[in-house]
């Protein structure tokens, strides 16, 4: 039973059909990659799943629940967290605060309790802090804990953003180009983390990725897109051998 099923999703901007008739299902604990040349509509598809964009057609079902029309801030509550292609962090906050925001969806206390900072709020906050420390350990971010994000190198910021998504404890995580801008060593770490997310944290991963070696190394299945449409769907090997995919990359 697929944890996420995307059926016939399409969206157009003005006259342009940026995403057109995309359907696929992702199995629990699967690592699912989306590839395609620039402008293929991959990020747009992510934005539709995370409800930043309103799809013109189709539906998205997550965990047996239709999430096509839920408000964007409920997506993470439903259990889907994401990262962004151009890192989208809170620059004037520390790494710790960025990660703490990842816990936002788990809060139960209302405005009044928070204004009084009651013991309940304190307990919640403490529980969050513990959870965030687990993420810090997992991603080895300890030495940056109290550093302002604005001053960090690109690669670290990328990992902080991943950490923020992980802190939300999602069941499905969407990674938009996790390896772009990372050096060789950081990319290797990323491969391990993605595998650990599935093996140790029980997560399902969907990632947009250009680095084919990374895609082949970790992904179970690959969806190739071009000009908003599906080109091929299968194992990394099958997709790489697909004549249409090769044509899309070479012929533009």
């Amino acid at each position: 039973m697929a944890v996420l099923s995307v059926s016939d999703v399409g969206i157009s901007f003005g006259g342009l059909r940026a995403v057109d008739g995309i359907s696929f299902g992702v199995e629990p604990r699967e690592i699912f990659a989306i590839i395609g040349p620039n402008g293929a509509g991959k990020t747009t598809l992510f934005n539709v799943i995370s409800r930043i964009y309103e799809p013109s057609t189709g539906s998205i079902v997550f965990d047996g629940r239709d999430i096509t029309r839920i408000p964007p801030h409920d997506v993470v509550r439903a259990g889907i967290a994401r990262t962004f292609q151009n890192i989208n962090l809170f620059d004037n906050a520390t790494v710790l605060d960025n990660l703490m925001l990842g816990r936002y969806r788990h809060h139960r206390s209302g405005v009044l309790r928070q204004t009084l900072f009651t013991p309940f709020v304190r307990r919640e906050k403490l529980a969050d802090r513990r959870k965030v420390e687990e993420v810090i350990d997992f991603l080895e971010l300890g030495k940056y804990r109290d550093v302002l994000v604005a001053g960090l190198p690109y690669g670290v910021r990328k990992i902080v953003e991943l950490g923020r998504a992980l802190a939300a404890e999602p069941r499905l995580i969407l990674l938009d180009e996790p390896s772009s801008g990372l050096n060789v060593e950081e990319t290797r770490d990323m491969v391990f983390w993605i595998q650990d997310m599935r093996d140790d944290l029980d997560m399902t991963v969907i990632m947009i990725e250009h680095d084919m070696s990374l895609v082949s190394a970790v992904s179970d299945r690959v969806l190739a897109m071009s000009s908003g449409r599906m080109l091929a769907l299968g194992t990394p090997g099958e997709v790489q051998r697909d004549p249409g995919v090769a044509a899309a990359y070479l012929g533009g």
């Binding site: 990842g102 936002y104 204004t115």
Partner: peptide
């Protein structure tokens, strides 16, 4: 001060820095 150190304050600062990211982490803008 209490609001600022509580999750609500964090959400406010998140909105200040990036609405899109705040929303994606579950902050109802």
């Amino acid at each position: 001060r209490n609001i600022v150190r509580a999750p609500l304050g964090l959400a406010m600062m998140a909105i200040r820095d990036s609405e899109t990211a705040a929303q994606s982490m579950g902050v109802p803008l």
